[in-house]
Nucleic acid binder design. Structure first.
Lengths: 193, 193
DNA sequence: AACGGCCGTTTAGTATTCTAGACAAATGGC
DNA sequence: GCCATTTGTCTAGAATACTAAACGGCCGTT
């Protein structure tokens, strides 16, 4: 009887099986539905979710092929229920070390992997509502103008100095409801847009 | 005889085996040395590197435990021989889409995961030479002052407008050789510092 | 040449994963 | 209540990963 000793429960990161189960339920799929998509059997899904086996890379890749997320993104996925999304200007953290000082968005920056850009939204700009695409995180600071941001159903109007941080898997939408350009310094993971 | 069909060669990303081999050689280890560190046998390493088997998550985790890199970082690792490191100011790419326009550092931004900060180096500042730590990427733009940057033995003096992009596994060092503060907008992956 | 040592590869056997199918519990119609 | 579906779990057998030990190749020394 294969125990959890060999590789059943992850020693360093989270439990792989539990995360798969959560991810599957987030997509509202049954084990059999996912199995069919992924090209494996339902039993395999069950065993993995129970952490009774340590799937091969090939199998895990097949399974994760069932929904739009890469294997690396899955392994680094943060399953915390509801991370902070919106930040007031005063929430921006000012860090001052010995010789080096800097400002950064968000408080707990560990386990985050992002890329920053300098964006400009003309009045009336709208990115639409799509894009669950493959995982990733997005954050940014409003420099000038007004930005209407909708994330996972929750909507906010951000003014200069305000910032945001959310997981790209959540449906999101950017709009400029104002009459002047909206400048945002933003950042996101690989696929960008 | 197990063929490469089941999961030997990766269908989407790069070849996992080749990457492991390259990574191992970058650290100057033999298969047996790595096997001993990782707690597996040399044969396993050989088979994986030849892509004749698709290792289990547990095994791959053990193997990668041999050197300081996480499994997720390994899977997203860019193995291109010598990616561009230094960028002239004119090399910064200005992207202008329909409603959105932005400037970003580096040309091929796919498969990059970074986080940006606003740094200030006082005259004489020096980060030292350590920090291979766990993987990651670093990039940045010099805003004002002069930044002396050494990456993998190669050294450059960057002035305002210049930028850099390199893999954190390479030994690197930041210095301010000037008499005034040096301001840099930089970005890097999780561990930050 | 012959030896010892280290290298990557390969092979036979064991351990594990994965499949196909059966099982019990929960759900929804009628 | 009863049937039909669907759910997650479990079991026997096939397929695969992993181990332990060998093999041939290469280099430096004697």
């Amino acid at each position: 009887m294969p125990d959890a000793g060999a590789g059943g429960n992850d020693t360093d990161g989270q439990d792989l099986g539990v995360r798969l189960r959560e991810l599957r339920k987030m997509y509202g799929l049954s084990q059999r539905e996912l199995a069919k998509r992924a090209g494996v059997t339902n039993g395999t899904i069950s065993l993995i979710e129970q952490s009774r086996i340590s799937p091969s890379i090939g199998s895990l890749k097949k399974v994760l092929g069932g929904f739009p997320i890469s294997i690396a993104d899955f392994l680094t996925l943060d399953m915390s229920p509801r991370a902070k999304v919106f930040y007031q200007a005063k929430d921006l953290r000012e860090i001052a070390g010995g010789d080096v000082s800097f400002r950064l968005v968000g408080r707990d920056t560990r386990d985050r992997a992002i890329q920053m850009m300098h964006e400009r939204y003309v009045p009336g700009a709208d990115t639409g509502e799509e894009m669950l695409s493959h995982a990733g995180e997005e954050c940014g600071i409003v420099i000038s103008g007004v930005l209407e941001l909708t994330v996972g159903g929750e909507s906010r109007r951000l003014v200069p100095g305000d910032a945001y941080y959310f997981n790209s898997r959540l449906p999101h939408r950017f709009q400029n409801p104002g009459t002047v350009d909206c400048v945002v310094v933003s950042a996101c993971t690989p696929p960008s847009f």
